[in-house]
Nucleic acid binder design. Sequence first.
DNA 1: GTTATCTTTGTGGGCGCTAACAGGCAAACC
DNA 2: GGTTTGCCTGTTAGCGCCCACAAAGATAAC
Lengths: 361, 361
Amino acid sequence: MGVNPHRVHRAASMADVARRAGVSAQTVSRVVNDRPHVDAATRARVLEALEHLGYRRNQAAVSLATGSYRTIGVVASTLTTHGAVLALDGMTEEVARHGWSLALSPLRTPTLGAVSEALTSLVGAGVDAVVLGVETELMRALPARSLVPGLPVVVMDGDGATELPAADSDPAPGLLAAMGHLFDLGHRQLRHLAGPPDSATAWRRRELWSTFCTEHGLDVVEPLVTDWSSASGVLAGRELLRTDRTATAVVAANDQVALGFVRACADAGVRVPDDVSVVGFDDVEYADVAVPRLSTVRHDLREVGRRAVRQLLHDLGVLPQAPEFPVPSEFVLRESTAPPAPQQWSNSYPGTPRGSSSRSR
Amino acid sequence: MGVNPHRVHRAASMADVARRAGVSAQTVSRVVNDRPHVDAATRARVLEALEHLGYRRNQAAVSLATGSYRTIGVVASTLTTHGAVLALDGMTEEVARHGWSLALSPLRTPTLGAVSEALTSLVGAGVDAVVLGVETELMRALPARSLVPGLPVVVMDGDGATELPAADSDPAPGLLAAMGHLFDLGHRQLRHLAGPPDSATAWRRRELWSTFCTEHGLDVVEPLVTDWSSASGVLAGRELLRTDRTATAVVAANDQVALGFVRACADAGVRVPDDVSVVGFDDVEYADVAVPRLSTVRHDLREVGRRAVRQLLHDLGVLPQAPEFPVPSEFVLRESTAPPAPQQWSNSYPGTPRGSSSRSR
DNA sequence: GTTATCTTTGTGGGCGCTAACAGGCAAACC
DNA sequence: GGTTTGCCTGTTAGCGCCCACAAAGATAAC
């Protein structure tokens, strides 16, 4: 134990270790950081002292001395969407692999002010780079304003309009395959339940849907808008079933909305996939278990998270090679799609909803 | 390694601000920390300089000087369960409210070694306290071993057997109400699909189920075990339907498992709730949207997360008052429960399973 | 008028670590 | 032999901030 009269239990410092090993603090530093130019015997002595004293390096001191916190900040809306959670998980994993940390800053409201505030708090807490997991087109106004100069950033909901580098997956392969599948089944009236308008991710899926329809000579009916949630999917679904009697297939912005739509169908006595086909997006856990099992688009958001971190680490000069973006997606065929009914389901509404029965096929 | 060899623009320090305001760094410190004994005029001058130079305090220096990182660490299994995500969200929120940060350390495998390692990395990265969101009874061995002395800790999956303070919700009110409801409907054969055996949370739910059964003179059939996932719920459900022809109601360890069971029923042509009743636990988003809508137990995990942070902040002397635990739970009645069929569903198995299209891969 | 008390401000020391440089020493070279 | 080269180790000087204390002036108390 060193000389520590006042504090009850002070953690061992390099100086303590140095004293015990009979070397200078600098030599201890070299051993701790695994640097060359240390004699094998000396190194062994230092390692013994390290072990004996239970030394843990003081990260604050390292940060102060080096100017790097070894921490990446994440600005994210509350973790309500499947995607955000998975991406966060991937980031956590990748960051740990390199001995770095993750600092979270929550965002209740997706406004520019809130983002700016979160950023400030993150920088104040000490981060070297930031992942913006924010869904807002306000993002576009950000670079000019509150971004900290010299702070590497990636955006997880980029729309190409921002200067900021994006870390995302490519919805095209999966979504186009999904719609191609519907088309091949004979569907000609594809509707879209869109995500929130300020989300670039939502917007991209919507664009993909509308260009597919245009290119195949299909009607492009203005999509109903959701907030990604199942509840809003139910609402939108109800509205769609009430107003649009020609739709034969629905392409939802994500699985949560798709599942909400399925629920709305169940309430209205409309059968999936017999009367309407549905495809989702994300391949959430429940998609493979839902009744009926949901056909959807799978993309590896966890991998996106990992690469986002790698991109930042690259920007900081820690990693030599930058990761590739976007990460691809693929269509997952399950049970929620079928050829359109010979007669429109809209004409065969049963008188009463069947509600609780699982007999939906 | 070398992160900033050629940093063009060094952030303004207190010394810079002090120079501009014509005062000492100490006075700047007082203004920044909102301490008394600073003349109004001086304070104004300092504030101007602060603003002008875009000063941001260097958290590493503060940490080094004060010995506090203002950061709480979280050791969590990968974010696959609904509960972990919500709790994390609550923690993020609460921590931000107090100007602190959260540091995440992932856990691929719930072994003692991994926990210990995660803890080490967290402490190495600089945290003042830790939330153990780990589900393992190995936790019990931890206090004796790798816990850092003087580091406040709360456990989110406590089983009462650990010395460590627990931050959790009380499953009893909700689960007992759920089972009481089943009992009142006439169910006398309640089965349980349990969570993983090393999870104290799972174990508590299981105990609640078995004591309820015992107290009401019902059979206590050895539960099938799951890993919380829907996939394992499907497997367990399949097994249950195959082997146990007397069950009329199933109490699942969580919603994911419950929903998996519902899927297994759909595959086997067993109707929910006509043939079997099902209740889940957690009230996940899909519970209210599933077909049929899932009756379940709701508990506010987000609040648990918030209070976990508050507990730690209390331990650290930041907050005067400790939060209360556990957080209560409540039963949510929806559509997956009904009186038992007059004749056992097990006797009316349709000849062929209808979900044979389960080959989705 | 002198002493006690308060307010306002500054000074020195140190938190634990790393970077840059300075020696000392041994082997290798001419 | 002297010099170069390379390895090993220690020294010095901060990183930016907060703490304890001291100093100066202003005000109050006697």
